[in-house]
């Protein structure tokens, strides 16, 4: 059990020492964490992005997109992991499935609303100029809706990295394994792993911000 004396900001100094002494452990756990998150995010992207973009382009399925958003937010990550455990048992795929379910709603709904909300006059003009539907989606709607689309992916990435931590309770490995195992690693280890996972989330968010900047059409500030 935890001793009261450990509750002090000095723990952060211990955490830094822990990082130095256990760099190998942290690195390998970070690798696991990245693998789990990356696979889940990739699957979610393949499933949700084309569907959201296409529905948005056709201006269909408003209710569907809105419900996915609502239900998606109401699904607690811990509950999903626990449900996954009961259905799929312990292991990588149980956790991956739970993470995919979490990542799909923000990607899908943001993609949908990003495209659905684009000024119809602009699309009309493009259609009048002879763009094919596919060209309208890729050359007009996607560039205009990109900030929102990427924002959805970013939220999904943050969710997935955060939840992959919790996945440790279901044998998911990753940094969460240290965080939920204070008995073995001590508060210093827990804090060190927490810092690592936070850094991971920030890097992911930063990376997506850079992607967005590189891909945005030069049209002044994003609206």
């Amino acid at each position: 059990m935890i001793v009261a004396a450990q509750f002090s900001p000095g723990t952060f100094v211990d955490a830094i020492h822990f990082m130095g002494n256990h760099a190998g452990l942290l690195l390998s756990k970070t690798g696991e964490h990245l693998e789990l998150s990356g696979v889940a995010l990739a699957i979610a992207l393949v499933l949700a992005l084309p569907l959201g973009l296409w529905l948005g382009h056709r201006h269909r399925g408003f209710l569907f997109a809105a419900s996915v958003a609502n239900v998606g937010r109401a699904l607690p990550s811990l509950v999903l992991i626990a449900f996954g455990l009961t259905v799929l048992g312990i292991g990588f795929w149980n956790n991956t499935a739970a993470l995919v379910v979490l990542a799909v709603p923000p990607i899908l709904t943001n993609a949908y609303f990003a495209i659905d909300n684009i000024d119809r006059d602009v699309v009309e003009a493009a259609r009048g100029m002879g763009f094919t539907e596919r060209q309208i989606l890729t050359r007009v709607e996607l560039p205009l809706g990109l900030p929102l689309v990427v924002a959805g992916i970013r939220i999904a990435a943050i969710f997935v990295i955060a939840t992959a931590t919790i996945a440790a309770v279901a044998g998911g490995g990753g940094l969460g394994e240290i965080i939920v195992n204070q008995a073995s690693y001590g508060l210093a280890g827990v804090v060190a792993a927490s810092l690592c996972v936070s850094a991971l989330a920030f890097l992911a968010a930063l990376l997506l911000a850079l992607v967005l900047r590189a891909a945005s059409p030069r049209q002044g500030p994003a609206t």
Partner: peptide
Amino acid sequence: PSLALFQLLVP
């Protein structure tokens, strides 16, 4: 991440 934030506040 929520779990990390909880733990970072514990000290």
